[in-house]
Computed example of a mutant assay.
Amino acid sequence: MSDMDIPRAVPAPARRALAGAGWTRLDQLTAVTERELRALHGMGPKAIGVLRAALRDRGLSLAGEQVDP
């Protein structure tokens, strides 16, 4: 698994939703808002939390959000 792949901790329905939207890497999500993620069928609060934490660990964030220092 690449350091930028979607984490395995993201539930399977959310992983499928991301793949269906063409997002297979964390760095792609820096151009995606939380609202866009929530609009995907299968994407819930747990998945968004895991994605947000994984992005933060790499100094990245969802579109429109700031990375905490």
Rank of each mutant, 00 (worst) to 15 (best):
D57N: 12
M1L: 10
L37Q: 05
R35C: 01
D5G: 01
I48S: 09
P11F: 07
A31E: 14
T24I: 06
R15Y: 01
A19H: 12
T24Y: 01
E36F: 01
A14K: 05
L62P: 08
V32L: 02
Q66P: 02
Q28R: 11
R58P: 04
Q28L: 07
V32C: 05
G22E: 07
W23Q: 03
A31W: 01
L37R: 05
V67I: 14
G20I: 10
A39R: 13
I6Q: 02
L18T: 09
L60G: 03
K46Q: 15
L55C: 09
A54T: 04
I6W: 02
S61Q: 12
A21W: 09
G64R: 04
D27G: 00
R52V: 12
V67E: 13
R16D: 14
A9V: 10
A53W: 03
A19C: 02
A39N: 09
D5I: 00
R52H: 11
R35D: 14
L26A: 02
W23R: 09
G49S: 13
L51F: 02
V67G: 13
P69D: 15
V10S: 04
D57P: 00
L18S: 07
A19L: 08
R8F: 06
P7W: 06
A9S: 15
E36G: 01
L62E: 08
A17T: 10
R38G: 02
G22T: 05
A9P: 05
L26W: 03
R38F: 07
S2W: 00
D5L: 01
R15C: 08
L60F: 06
A47I: 09
A17C: 06
K46G: 06
E65R: 13
V50G: 08
L55M: 08
A53C: 04
P7E: 06
G59C: 14
R8G: 05
A53P: 01
L60H: 12
E65Q: 15
T30Y: 00
E65D: 15
P7M: 08
R25Y: 01
E36Y: 01
I6G: 02
M1W: 01
M1T: 13
P69G: 14
D5N: 08
R35L: 09
R52L: 03
A19E: 15
R52P: 04
A21R: 15
R16H: 13
A53G: 10
A54C: 04
G64Q: 06
A14Y: 06
L26E: 04
I6K: 02
A54W: 03
A54L: 05
D68E: 15
E65L: 11
S2T: 11
G44R: 09
D68S: 15
R15W: 03
L29C: 04
T33R: 08
G44M: 10
S2H: 08
L62T: 07
T24D: 11
L60N: 05
L40Q: 11
L29N: 05
L18W: 04
S61R: 13
Q28K: 03
R15G: 08
L18V: 05
R8V: 14
E34C: 01
I48A: 10
